[in-house]
């Protein structure tokens, strides 16, 4: 039986002497562990967190004609005193000048609209892939993933030749007799929508496909058996079950689209306002580093809500699977 009483505490003195090399070896293991943690940790602190804190700092100071082109936040004056020169002036400036607020709002609007469009384009593709015979699926998946690997810039560039006034789309439409005057698409918001849908389509299709592929098809048979027509079954069974895929796909498109620079710059017009482009202009053309830092800080604040929501949703679906 298990009723034996615990033995007296083992004599420790001689054992401790024997154990010391073992303890030393365990110390080495521990050191190794902390070393493995330290290398990437310090790297990210130095090249991710520190830079961001610098952005925060510079957003509080003034622009100056010098190198670097901004004033100091903290200066050391005599007697060990330090002087703090920060102000929220740059942020007030963003509030006063309608350009910035309009850029933020317009970015959100463009990102939201193109997310919906991407969903509308992506869902049928993902659905078709998930219902395709098993032996096709790998090839179809590769076809979706491949553009994701090829250069973003090149894929956006490819659309310029198509959407231009004398481009291939207008050429084709005129040939077919559908239009008499060439359409102006390039350098409008429509071109930006097309660019975003095109560039981010794999981000929408992949989570949707992963979700739809897992779906138990006998659920649809059960629905049919209970008298539900296929189209209705799609809306009341398939769509609700693929909700996690839809939400994940939408976040994956919306979040990067808000801060997009290349697409509005190459495909959009001068009146297309997007915050990424505004930041770029502020930095490279106006050389106002403090204001562009303030723009960056606000952009991040705007994005934090969807990012946090997205992470929550990911966590929840991971938990639901476990």
């Amino acid at each position: 039986m298990s009723s034996s009483p615990p033995p007296a505490a083992p004599a420790t003195a001689p054992q401790a002497a024997v154990e010391s090399p073992e303890v030393a070896r365990q110390g080495t293991q521990k050191l190794l562990k902390y070393l493995v943690i330290a290398v990437p940790y310090l790297w990210l602190l130095a090249f991710f967190l520190a830079p961001f804190l610098i952005v925060l700092k510079i957003s509080l100071v003034e622009v100056r004609v010098a190198m670097p082109p901004y004033s100091e936040l903290i200066t050391f004056v005599e007697d060990g005193w330090i002087a703090f020169h920060g102000s929220l002036e740059n942020y007030l400036w963003l509030w006063d000048d309608p350009l910035y607020i309009n850029s933020y709002l317009s970015s959100l609007k463009i990102a939201a609209t193109s997310t919906v469009l991407t969903l509308l384009v992506g869902y049928p593709i993902a659905y078709g892939m998930a219902r395709a015979p098993r032996r096709w699926r790998f090839a179809l998946l590769m076809l979706v993933i491949l553009p994701f690997w090829t250069s973003f810039l090149i894929r956006v560039y490819a659309w310029i030749g198509i959407l231009k006034k004398e481009g291939l789309l207008n050429l084709a439409l005129t040939h077919l007799g559908l239009i008499s005057e060439p359409l102006t698409i390039l350098n409008t918001d429509i071109a930006v929508y097309i660019g975003i849908v095109y560039s981010y389509l794999p981000f929408m299709v992949l989570p949707l496909y992963a979700n739809l592929e897992k779906m138990d098809l006998s659920l649809l048979e059960a629905a049919a058996d209970l008298g539900c027509r296929p189209i209705k079954a799609f809306w009341v069974v398939t769509v609700p079950l693929s909700m996690t895929g839809i939400v994940a796909g939408c976040f994956l498109v919306f979040i990067p689209a808000v801060g997009e620079f290349v697409i509005p710059d190459l495909l959009g017009g001068s009146e297309t306002l997007m915050i990424g482009k505004t930041l770029w202009t502020e930095f490279f053309n106006n050389r106002d580093w403090p204001v562009s830092s303030a723009v960056a800080v606000i952009l991040l604040l705007v994005l934090i809500i969807p990012i946090v929501l997205f992470q929550r949703q990911q966590q929840r679906s991971a938990e639901a699977e476990a």
């Binding site: 615990p6 054992q15 154990e19 073992e22 303890v23 365990q26």
Partner: peptide, 17 residues
């Protein structure tokens, strides 16, 4: 508590030893 294998305390002995 303690685990003793042939009278020897196993605490602090990693699996690979």
């Amino acid at each position: 508590g303690q685990i003793l294998l042939e009278g020897e305390d196993m605490s602090g002995v990693p699996p690979y030893e």
